[in-house]
Design a protein around this nucleic acid. Sequence first.
DNA 1: AGCTACTCCTGGTAGC
DNA 2: TGCTACCAGGAGTAGC
Length: 279
Amino acid sequence: MPELPEVETVARLIRPHLVGRRVVAAHVAWRRTLGSCAIATFERQVVGARFASVERRAKYIVMRLEPEGALVGHLRMTGRMHVEDGTWDPGKFAKVRLDLDDGRAFHFIDVRKFGRLEFVRDPERALAELGPEPLGEHFTFEWLRDALRGHRRRLKPLLLDQTFLAGLGNIYVDESLHRARLHPLQLAARVSAPAARALHREIRSVLSEAIEREGSSFDSFYRTPEGNPGGYQDQFQVYGRAGLPCRTCATPIRRLVVGQRGTHVCPRCQPAPRRSRKP
DNA sequence: AGCTACTCCTGGTAGC
DNA sequence: TGCTACCAGGAGTAGC
């Protein structure tokens, strides 16, 4: 499912097709994609506006509009964005289409309908609760070490919390924890400084490598705006590899459930914390 | 504060 | 072949 590397890929690939373009018409096939906004209101706010920029913040795509406001998109599990010629058929899962002044069209497509494309007047305020960007300058080893100390939560739920750190999802948390040799149930406050340094390093390298490969595709859902699958799934060490040998030590990867999320660990590389709960 | 459970959704898959 | 049941999960919310 789209996490930071997938969303970054989408933003990079749609940006050159959108910036400078004006919206000449909007078609909404599923109202809830717009959040709480009525279709007529959305159309009034978007039609006639011009795309000023396309940026990623956490797992959101922020498309600033002139003269005001922004479209804030979230792909959730199965959302896709495309910019295609006007004759292109987005298929039966099309949710929103914005016709552009160059004859092309922006499409928001979503099988499971969890994705969102919302108009907001003030994107800074709408996204104010998010934590730091893992690839940004504020996410330093020192920040992570100190932030972990201040929490009594377990590592995995904490790293998935977008108000703590913004952009990681289930896949890249599992991959980062494995590479840092940390167990997902480890209490954050008990992570040593050297382990925090490893976690900081591995989060950044996992995300950077995944962006280089345009994200991960392991089912039919995530595709880039050009229709291509990502390439990072070939690098997975643990995610989706339950029962398969660890690529480091050959111990079979185990799957557990942490916070209702499928969680993948190597029991040897990532020793369980003392006094960990038994299932 | 931090946990669990539930909601929203539907294609894919396992089991019969 | 065709049915049913269940699974995946990002984020929001409710309740303990």
